[in-house]
Design a protein around this nucleic acid. Structure first.
Lengths: 230, 230
DNA sequence: GTCTATATAGGGATAGAC
DNA sequence: GTCTATCCCTATATAGAC
């Protein structure tokens, strides 16, 4: 059960290094570095720089020279971690998938009331995308140019997220907590609003809206549409 | 006053060629072709192909050789219409701006009731993005890599659209038709849902939701949140 | 394990024939 | 007004020194 963003954040950040370590172990075939400690350190720099540069000018427009300059590595050094530029995408996507899967499962399972589950799912998604904004943004923007396997995974995770919301709403309709609306369409609209949070982050910063406020408004918007009127 | 998508469509499509003609006249300095008829014909092919290719693999990843193959032009022929690759962006963006500005002004001015104006604005935006899907998609996805002047225009038009919605809602609040909610934030959420329509067009096609149905649901979602309960 | 120097190809841009 | 052939730079990728 999540309470608010700060709690969520403190629970999750410590595991960031673990994720990179897991990523390293999953990719020992492509990565020629043997010492785990240095590998984790450099992978972190590579991933951070790639996300920053790709998100500001686009992945394809980002050159590996840009990446080396930004991450402080040399071309040769970089190529110890990847075989080609597409492997960079693989690294980025994998590390995001690991975190996303883990978190969403964790935070939406154990609630009974559909209203509460709906709110919990909204918060879980918003908080996660707040913490991993760069990855979510990258994933959305580069989706169309992802290599085939990564594209499949990305679509699968999208559907998974959307069906979490659809299921909650359908449950609520069955239990007469929600009115009989088009659950799938409502789920799509929820997702659109969730995505806007990380796609247009600056806009909401300018409006001085916090994640928790946004979560509340989202919940109210959705509930006022699907709640059964008394 | 708009009734439904089919009517909107038949009113607007005839002017598509006019827009390209206007585009040509605005850019006679960069375009070395003197005969208007051939220029309009080729500009149309160039714009269509660019949108198709850029939207499927990204503008930067699209090579001018790709473009020539797709549009049936030669490199030399293409360069009679542009001085460099960025000029392509300029062509695309200009022709979209021309249509968008013209349409939004036309369809949201002359209504009194805030509820009706809200619905009209939702429909105008959805219908327009339905008709010009490729341009809207391009504009959104390439926004970050646009040349400076085009970027400024794109941001300006975004704000313009958002403030149309904000104003309608504020008017409604003042007239006690709508409850006292955060108008700017609601406008942002509306825009997020409007954008999802053209960004994730396939998803809604799979759900077999029509533009008009989507417009209705959007209106209901928004109204159920901001309407004053009786 | 990390660096610099270099090979190679691919794509933007242009010259000049027709 | 349109095409083909070509120039030249940039970016990926690799070889080999340290």
């Amino acid at each position: 059960m999540i309470t608010n963003y700060e709690v969520f954040r403190s629970e999750l950040t410590m595991s960031k290094e673990d994720v990179i370590r897991e990523l390293y172990r999953e990719n020992t075939d492509r990565i020629s570095i043997k010492k785990e400690a240095t590998a984790v350190k450099n992978l972190t720099r590579i991933i951070d720089s790639t996300l920053r540069l790709a998100n500001s000018k686009g992945f394809h427009a980002m050159t590996l020279r840009d990446l080396c300059a930004d991450s402080g590595m040399s071309m040769g050094g970089l190529y110890a971690y990847i075989r080609n530029k597409d492997d960079l995408i693989h690294l980025i996507q994998s590390h995001g998938f690991i975190i996303t899967r883990r978190t969403l499962q964790h935070y939406t399972a154990d609630l009974d009331d559909p209203r509460e589950r709906l709110y919990a799912a909204i918060k879980a998604h918003l908080y996660l995308s707040e913490l991993m904004r760069a990855w979510f943004y990258f994933s959305y923007m580069e989706a169309k140019s992802l290599p085939e396997p990564e594209k499949r995974d990305a679509i699968a995770i999208e559907l998974e997220i959307e069906s979490i919301f659809q299921t909650v709403i359908e449950d609520g309709i069955r239990e007469k907590v929600f009115a009989d609306k088009n659950a799938r369409l409502v789920a799509s609209l929820i997702k659109a609003m969730l995505q806007d949070w990380y796609l247009k982050r600056r806009k909401y910063r300018d409006q001085e809206v916090s994640v928790d406020q946004y979560a509340l408004v989202l919940r109210d918007v959705v509930e006022s549409y699907i709640s059964v009127s008394i």
